[in-house]
Computed example of a mutant assay.
Amino acid sequence: MADTQQVDAKADRKAAKLAKQITAFSKAHGGAEGQVAYLGQRGARIALVGEDGNWGNLVAPTYEIAQKAVEKSGLTVHEDFDGEFAAKVKTGRYEWSRMAGIQVGGPAND
């Protein structure tokens, strides 16, 4: 029983820390929305998009912890990263060159 309580407490602390980071991102960017994606054994990615178009990612050790974090932060969560939500992301020259990679003379993805 003590082991389960210890694991739950650790998960709650991690969720609280992620929620704090989500809230800080949201405050810094005039609000934010997000999407949680399962990454397999690595856990879950919380993609964040600020109202100003800036974006970022956080990784939680489990999908359940990611869900707790977004609930604690009050983040609006989308099922998918497409459509109007994806259109809010502003990308700069660096992102375009990284996405293009060596195909159009951008930096290699190595």
Results as ranks from 00 to 15, higher is better:
Ala11Arg: 12
Ala11Cys: 04
Ala28Ile: 00
Gly31Leu: 02
Thr4Cys: 13
Thr4Phe: 07
Asp12Trp: 06
Ala37Glu: 14
Thr4Gly: 15
Lys10His: 14
Lys17Ala: 13
Gln6Lys: 11
Lys20Leu: 14
Ala24Lys: 13
His29Phe: 01
Lys27Cys: 01
Tyr38Asp: 15
Asp3Thr: 10
Lys20Pro: 00
Gly30Ser: 09
Ala15Leu: 06
Glu33His: 07
His29Arg: 10
Asp3His: 11
His29Glu: 03
Ala16Gly: 13
Glu33Ser: 14
Asp12Gln: 13
Asp8His: 08
Lys20Asp: 13
Ala9Asp: 12
Ala11Asn: 14
Ile22Leu: 07
Ala32Phe: 04
Gly31Tyr: 01
Asp3Phe: 08
Gln6Leu: 09
Thr23Leu: 05
Gly40Phe: 04
Glu33Phe: 02
Tyr38Ile: 09
Ile22Tyr: 04
Thr4Arg: 14
Gln35Asn: 12
Lys10Gln: 13
Ala16Gln: 10
His29Met: 02
Leu39Pro: 00
Gly40Ala: 08
Asp12Lys: 06
Thr23His: 05
Ala24Ile: 04
Gln6Trp: 07
Glu33Gln: 13
Arg13Leu: 03
Ala11Leu: 11
Gly30Cys: 07
Lys14Gly: 01
Ala24Arg: 12
Ala19Lys: 01
Val7His: 12
Gln35Ile: 07
Ala9Cys: 00
Val36Lys: 02
Gly31Thr: 02
Ala37Met: 08
Lys14Asp: 07
Gly40Met: 08
Ala37Val: 12
Lys14Asn: 04
Thr23Gln: 07
Leu39Val: 01
Ser26Asp: 08
Ala28Val: 05
Gln5Tyr: 10
Ala37Gln: 15
Ala24Phe: 06
Gln5Asn: 09
Lys14His: 08
Arg42Val: 15
Gln35Lys: 11
Ala24Met: 06
Thr4Asp: 10
Thr23Glu: 08
Ala11Ser: 14
Ala28Tyr: 03
Gln21Asn: 10
Leu18Met: 07
Gln6Val: 14
Gly30Asp: 11
Ala9Thr: 09
Gln6Asn: 11
Lys17Tyr: 13
Ile22Asn: 02
Glu33Val: 10
Gln5Glu: 15
Leu18His: 01
Lys27Met: 01
Asp12Met: 09
Ile22Phe: 04
Lys20Ser: 15
Ala11Glu: 06
Ser26Ala: 15
Asp12Cys: 00
Val7Thr: 11
Gly40Thr: 08
Val36Cys: 02
